[in-house]
Design a protein around this nucleic acid. Structure first.
Lengths: 119, 119
DNA sequence: CACGTATATACGTGTAAGAGTATATCAGAA
DNA sequence: TTCTGATATACTCTTACACGTATATACGTG
């Protein structure tokens, strides 16, 4: 499995991680909320645990899984250089649109702050 | 190929992206710097281009590839909730270490306060 | 034109990973 | 102990994808 990027390439695993960001969950809770078969959940949790994305504690027959920050921070670190790159790009684009006096995609961006867009 | 996460799961593609963050490069330059066979480079560039990670312009026989920000921003956006999560965690850890009177990662603050509390 | 350089694509192959099903393990209740 | 609920693992099957090799396309130069 190797890298953290391969781990989060799997959609179900990303779903599980997103679910755990709010609070810890048991396997059954994950299973029900994400509507995926229990072995699937367990197998993905195994992968996530081996890679350090989650940890678990035992509560009677249940296992409670919770998030661990390090691996995703690694992804975040990898993104750092690109973040610098695209903020420069956004600035350039804004200056360009400014000179053009046009706002084709954004409708009069209110004020300051980073203009984050989502697809 | 679907998602941006699957695209960046491939180590060679990440290497190419990292290379392009500094400036645009031709296929041959990428090939030489990363020491990978030319068809490999071209194929990965094809994937990256189809996914919107890069764009290319023609310069005689060469094609110059450069980075496009949007897909990686998508990754960055997905990371946002987790960032909030782990910054809370770092704070908790720091408070905990504070109570323990230890600073394993930061070199400041010599051993002061013997508040040996356990959780 | 022919030739060399630069890049793209086609084809065949191996391998790994996810899905589904069945079963094993383990804890608690009766 | 036996039964039930909760979770983990084993096994098979299928598919996707990365790779290597070969070839095609395109451009520039002699």
């Amino acid at each position: 499995m190797e890298s953290v990027f391969e781990i989060i390439a799997e959609p179900n695993r990303r779903a599980i991680l997103s679910l755990l960001v709010s609070s810890e969950q048991s396997v059954g809770e994950i299973e029900r909320q994400l509507r995926m078969p229990q072995p699937t959940v367990s197998k993905h949790l195994r992968v996530l645990r081996d890679a350090g994305f989650v940890e678990s504690t035992v509560d009677a027959q249940r296992r409670l899984y919770r998030l661990k920050p390090e691996p995703l921070q690694e992804v975040d670190d990898w993104l750092a250089p690109f973040r610098r790159f695209w903020s420069a790009h956004v600035d350039a684009l804004e200056r360009h649109l400014e000179r053009m006096g046009q706002h084709p995609t954004t409708k009069s961006t209110p004020a300051k702050g980073k203009t984050r867009r989502r697809k």
